[in-house]
């Protein structure tokens, strides 16, 4: 059985840990709200750019190198993770998904956003084309940099497809790793209209369909990455909020248990001392 002093030290160290986990929980809670707002703010843009792309592709004859389907000999995997751990299984779930994907596709090349992904996938020994920190720069700039790199490699023929593995923010409780084919671009599904017929407008394009397509497609890739960054970020905070809430609760439980043991030990010591004194006094009396 541990001595009183050992118990006291353990409780103190647990309290310190709990203080840290509680602080991290509160930070995550505060930041998740902002991340969620940013995610929501990006939605109108997502809808609008998706609709424009559909209109363009629907006009037919939409031809652009970024739309070109080639037989896949080299596949690019763009994995997004957090920069930091202490977020439960968040990073390992994403890394596992990417590892699995790397087994399914021919000649995987890795593009990594977030330092945790780099650490977790190092053991695969796959060619790593580029990596970026998730927090290394503001998201619009980061999205631009990532988009430029994968687009260039796709156009140069280094990779024939790029698949994005990132976290989808379903709710604070649920975050799911998802895969999206980034390149070649496939037009998003037409949202079915209430009256059952698709919207068809004879669009006019200025300066011409080709030029509009050439401007819109890179923007679409960039925005898809931007949106994935926002979702991954929000998911990270949500995962950390849950992990740290659990950690704080567990620390609390341990502290309670240990405090009980500590009090019992102390009481036992006191009782023992009283018994000794009383015993001693009794012995003196009778002698």
């Amino acid at each position: 059985m541990a001595t009183l002093r050992q118990l006291r030290d353990r409780v103190r160290s647990l309290r310190n840990t709990q203080q840290i986990t509680r602080a991290m929980k509160m930070v995550a809670g505060a930041r998740i709200r902002r991340a969620e707002l940013a995610m929501r703010a990006a939605r109108p843009y997502a809808n609008a750019i998706g609709e424009m792309l559909r209109e363009l592709v629907a006009t037919g004859g939409a031809q652009h190198p970024l739309l070109e389907q080639r037989p896949v000999k080299n596949a690019g995997i763009l994995l997004m993770t957090a920069d930091k751990g202490l977020a439960g299984a968040f990073n390992s779930n994403l890394a596992r998904n990417a590892t699995q994907l790397a087994r399914e596709v021919p000649n995987p090349h890795l593009y990594l956003v977030g330092t945790k992904g780099r650490v977790q996938l190092r053991s695969l020994g796959l060619p790593r084309e580029s990596d970026w920190g998730l927090q290394s720069q503001p998201f619009p700039t980061l999205a631009k940099a990532v988009a430029a790199q994968v687009t260039e490699d796709f156009l140069s023929g280094k990779v024939d497809t790029v698949i994005l593995v990132s976290s989808r923010f379903v709710s604070t409780i649920v975050q799911r790793p998802t895969r999206v084919q980034l390149l070649p671009i496939t037009a998003p599904e037409q949202a079915s209209r209430a009256d059952g017929k698709a919207l068809r407008n004879a669009f006019e394009f200025e300066p011409d369909p080709k030029a509009v397509l050439a401007a819109l497609l890179p923007k679409y890739v960039e925005f898809t990455i931007f949106q994935a960054l926002l979702e991954t970020q929000a998911s990270e905070f949500a995962a950390r909020l849950i992990a740290m809430t659990n950690a704080t609760d567990n620390a609390g439980k341990l502290i309670d248990d240990l405090t009980l043991v500590m009090n019992k030990t102390r009481q036992a010591t006191i009782t023992k001392e009283i018994l000794e004194i009383v015993g001693g006094a009794e012995a003196l009396k009778t002698s």
Partner: peptide
């Protein structure tokens, strides 16, 4: 500021997509 010069859009415009 449209691709082919500034343009004004009023209601009932023909479907147009421009940079």
């Amino acid at each position: 500021p449209g691709a082919a010069g500034d343009l004004g859009v009023l209601a009932n415009h023909a479907p147009l997509l421009t940079t």
